[in-house]
Nucleic acid binder design. Structure first.
Lengths: 339, 339
DNA sequence: TTGTATGCGTTATCAC
DNA sequence: GTGATAACGCATACAA
């Protein structure tokens, strides 16, 4: 079956067989020396490891996977890698997975549910589990994938599927209270992606807290999370009569800042702006009041849930739902209501 | 060898055997229906594909890899996924790889050459090739890896290894000319990571162009590419007597803008700032004059090089070195020398 | 054009 | 404690 020339990829990499030969033992013994050393005499283990080291032997994961049905790989699928709250999460997932001995596939769905579904289908046969960040797929589709492989969701709340939720409701509520405390009476919420769990959560939190404090709350659509969308929303924002805005995320908030600056409206003197996710930190001008994100922790936690479940032989746990609290970080874009 | 319970990962996924059974053909025919349809009668192909579809058959990549020595996977390794010029590149790599039928592993070296080396070693046995962005590893180490697997570098210039270089020298030279044209006589270059090819290239371009135009050029170290590093460099910047700065990248430039704003120094009225990479677009205040990046194209090109080389049976081409030109994007942070 | 037989590198089940 | 050997799922020489 082998073509005439050596295979393209691994040309004559040492196999378990060559190690066995050099060590003067059987292939089975070599295998055991790595997977179950306690079954062997210590000196045998040493002998085998020595031979392996000399040959530069590395186990072939494809063969291992074929035999065990386990791959040593995870996949992380995200809606938009360019969104700044994603990379820290990826980074945390990668670190945590690496520490647990897993390599990580990355998939970018570009906010397209169909593409996300396809990605999962293609990745399934070579991963042990998935981390899905802010999945845009339908609940039924997610459930189907969860049946094929262990799967942990981040910022998507589906009962029965392990999930890590960054609970921005608390932080957003604090933002509303903060603005109310500064005397604002009419407040706008600038929406994010419509299918986003986070957006629904934040919108609700603004509304509820605003109602409680007797504020008027208007909700403005933005459709996308982007700088431009924020800038373009400024017109509607000013027409709404609000004196302060809570934006779905920092990108939108930054766009709003730019749009206000263009119109010569001073922040926070004439208008207050709060963001969410704390991804731009103090990088805006003025430094943005925002809600802390904990994206790194969310990623790390998701992998912990996944690997612990994989370790326990895939035994389904009861419903797991981890909430990560958030708090308001007051910087310099919020101030007293203009008089 | 199978343990009593079904394997953890793929429980009874349909195999080529089940498809063969349903379609009433041999397993070899099923295999050929997917890999070499032209060898079969069209109706046979149709019959097989039909059965496969009904069963939801997905080829097992581990078995395929074991048999062919090809994996259908690429790995992309980056120094720091949080650096905003990286995600667009990853995104492009992913798209292009996906289009060519490859899945993508992502590795984050955290700027650590040893970690990068380890990552590659662990990934090697399950990928067909690598894209290394701004690798921090030693040249000999890279060459060794390149011997094990086809490998394309981005922004790292090693003879004999295919590489895609974003040639910011041109854009940076334009920036210096632009500043000279505005009357600046003393100019600073704010450095980036010391082991970075891009940093060396940009520093040289500033120096050379400055010399040519009779400007005084001072080079300031920054060690890191970060907002804070830029802000902290402002003191040294002002002491240097320069009236304009070209920063290694936009992040540094943005930090400089913040540091200047803190001191009440107006941009571009009293000081001019230019960045590089165009990752913040118009998101700074004022919108940043910078050098275009083309990170997406670089990523896509790298994958093209890689897959074309893989397609051609791994036959080594002669030296490949793709340069992507850049140009200056003038926005609002550069202006006439203060009088 | 299609079927048969074999091997890819590993783990696991038996023997010894 | 260790050695044969049969899977795992697929691709391919070879036979028909």
């Amino acid at each position: 079956m082998r073509s005439s020339e050596p295979r393209a990829a691994a040309r004559s990499a040492p196999t378990i067989g060559s190690v066995a030969e050099v060590a003067g033992v059987s292939r089975a013994t070599v295998s055991r020396a790595f997977t179950r050393p306690q079954m062997l005499r210590p000196e045998t283990v040493e002998k085998v490891r020595d031979a392996a080291r000399r040959l530069g032997y590395v186990p072939n994961p494809a063969a291992k996977a074929l035999s065990t049905g386990r791959f040593g790989n995870l996949a992380m699928v995200v809606p938009d890698i360019a969104n700044p709250y994603i990379p820290p999460m990826i980074s945390a997932v990668e670190e945590q997975a690496d520490a647990a001995g897993f390599a990580v596939f990355l998939g970018n769905s570009a906010e397209d549910p169909a593409r996300e579904d396809l990605l999962l289908r293609k990745l399934t046969p070579q991963v042990d589990g998935f981390v899905l960040a802010a999945s845009r797929m339908g609940e039924d589709v997610i459930r189907r994938h969860a049946q094929a492989r262990p799967l942990v969701l981040v910022n998507r709340d589906i009962e029965g599927i392990p999930r890590v939720l960054i609970d921005t409701a608390g932080g957003v509520a604090q933002a509303v209270e903060h603005l109310a405390g500064l005397g604002h009476r009419r407040l706008a919420y600038l929406s994010g992606p419509p299918h986003s769990w986070a957006n629904a959560q934040r919108r609700r939190a603004v509304k509820r807290t605003g109602d409680k404090l007797g504020l008027e709350v208007v909700t403005l659509p933005a459709r996308l999370s982007s700088h431009d969308a924020g800038r373009q929303a400024v017109g509607a924002l000013l027409e709404s009569g609000a004196t302060a805005v809570v934006a779905f995320d920092d990108l939108l908030a930054q766009g709003v800042l730019a749009g206000l600056a263009e119109r010569g409206i001073r922040v926070p003197g004439e208008f207050s702006v709060a963001g969410c996710d704390d991804v731009l930190a103090a990088q805006t001008f003025p430094p943005l009041t925002t809600v802390s994100a904990r994206a790194r922790e969310a990623g790390a936690t998701a992998v912990e849930l996944l690997t612990s479940r994989l370790g326990s032989g895939g035994g389904a746990m009861s419903d797991v739902r981890v909430m990560l609290d958030t708090t308001l970080v007051v910087r310099a874009t919020t101030g007293p209501r203009p008089v």
